[in-house]
Amino acid sequence: MTYVKPISTLWWLRRPSYFLFALRELSSVFVAWFVVYLLMLVSAISAGPEAYHRFLDWSTGRVLVLNVVALLFVLLHAVTWFNLAPRAMVVPHVPPVVVLVLHYLLWLGLSAALAWVVLR
């Protein structure tokens, strides 16, 4: 006759690391939202200038706030993911910090390339 302790609904508040984990799980919802937003943008552009401007007008106020929150969550997702990289990729004779820095450099490079394409 053993005793099994029930799991409290608020278990994820018990430790900072559990809380961070819950936030990271939640971040996937915002990643999904960005995908939807991007598809909406593309469909607005393909529907012509008028639809595009309507989309831009819609993207202010509450939608903008949502997008800022989403950006923060996506950044959390990306940073925790990248910090994990050196533990998943163990390259013989290469120190973990090098693996980490290379990941960030790649991220920066790709972002810069995208920014150049979009803003040029």
Binding site: R15, S17, Y18, F21, R24, E25, T80, L84
Partner: peptide
């Protein structure tokens, strides 16, 4: 595993 990381701590 969803990488909470507490096992290693």
């Amino acid at each position: 595993c969803t990488f909470v990381g507490e096992c290693s701590t």
